[in-house]
């Protein structure tokens, strides 16, 4: 990191936005030359600070993997973020909407890993072989940027809009399933708002996780045994509002609900 690098300043700006629960202009407005690589450096710096305060890294997540999300966010490059022990919200607990800036929810297929996966060269078959089980999940995202307006560099720095994740209660062995054909119905307040299949994320969720392992491998990191991987939103994200529960029902994997209060 050179002396003129904006990485530390950007990390401080984002950390303050999280602490003050306040949306900010995107970093690339102040630093137009910010690269995706620097975005990941900011993410790593913030992760290190968080670990030093006691959080444990327990997983990873992919963002902008579906065409629906890429169209919604006007951003065509998949990005990854980190999941910590304090990101997990219990499935049956209501969620306090005001604890975040402008939360949205997206349905995902979740992998719980049995074995370590380190790229390069990780394939979808390697991912399935290394997976303990899959379940359904909802990710509550919350961009630190005004109106969720960002570039890939901004969103990488912001740990891909991380906030909370909720896992469904049913753990399933992926061996007999075609995860690319898992059906999904998304409902808000009992009204269907979107449908998709598992193929919405990179053609197959295991392909998305393989890409993640290869991304991490290129940075000397890996998907560790025991980690939980959120493989990317299958639909556009929907706002999480008080009194309008969001429910995702999946073929084979059961359902999961977030109820905002």
């Amino acid at each position: 990191m050179s002396a003129s690098s904006p990485v530390v300043e950007c990390a401080d700006i984002l950390e303050a936005a999280v602490a003050e629960r306040r949306a900010i202009s995107r970093l690339t407005e102040k630093f137009p030359d910010l690269t995706l690589e620097q975005g990941y450096e900011i993410q790593a710096l913030l992760a290190g600070r968080r670990i030093s305060r006691g959080a444990s890294p327990v997983g990873a997540k992919l963002g902008l993997t579906s065409r629906a999300k890429q169209v919604q966010m006007k951003c065509t490059e998949p990005v990854y973020g980190r999941l910590f022990s304090d990101n997990f919200h219990p499935g049956n607990e209501p969620f306090e909407v005001a604890s975040l800036i402008h939360p949205r929810v997206e349905p995902e297929i979740v992998f719980v890993m049995k074995h370590r996966l380190a790229g390069p060269g990780v394939s979808a078959a390697d991912v399935i072989a290394a997976t303990e089980s899959v379940c359904c999940g909802l990710e509550i995202i919350d961009s630190r940027y005004d109106d969720f307006s960002f570039t890939a560099a901004d969103v990488a720095a912001d740990n891909t809009s991380e906030a909370k994740v909720v896992m469904g209660p049913k753990m399933v062995d992926p061996a007999g399933l075609d995860l690319g054909l898992i059906g999904l119905l998304l409902e808000v307040d009992g009204e269907q708002v979107a449908t998709a299949s598992g193929a919405a994320t990179m053609g197959h969720p295991a392909e998305a996780v393989a890409m993640l392992a290869n991304f991490l491998g290129a940075r000397g990191e890996a998907i560790e045994a025991g980690w939980t991987i959120f493989s990317g939103g299958l639909t556009a994200a929907v706002p999480l509002a008080v009194g309008s529960p969001v429910t995702a029902t999946f073929g084979h994997l059961g359902s999961v609900t977030v109820r905002g209060i």
Binding site: G180, L181, G183, L185, T195, A199, T249, F250
Partner: peptide, 23 residues
């Protein structure tokens, strides 16, 4: 489960739409 059959539409080999029978 007739409501939860995932469905993919491929055009010339590319998946261009994904959905579910419950649509």
């Amino acid at each position: 489960d007739p409501a939860l059959i995932g469905a993919n539409l491929r055009k010339n080999g590319e998946i261009v739409e994904t959905g579910c029978s419950g649509a």
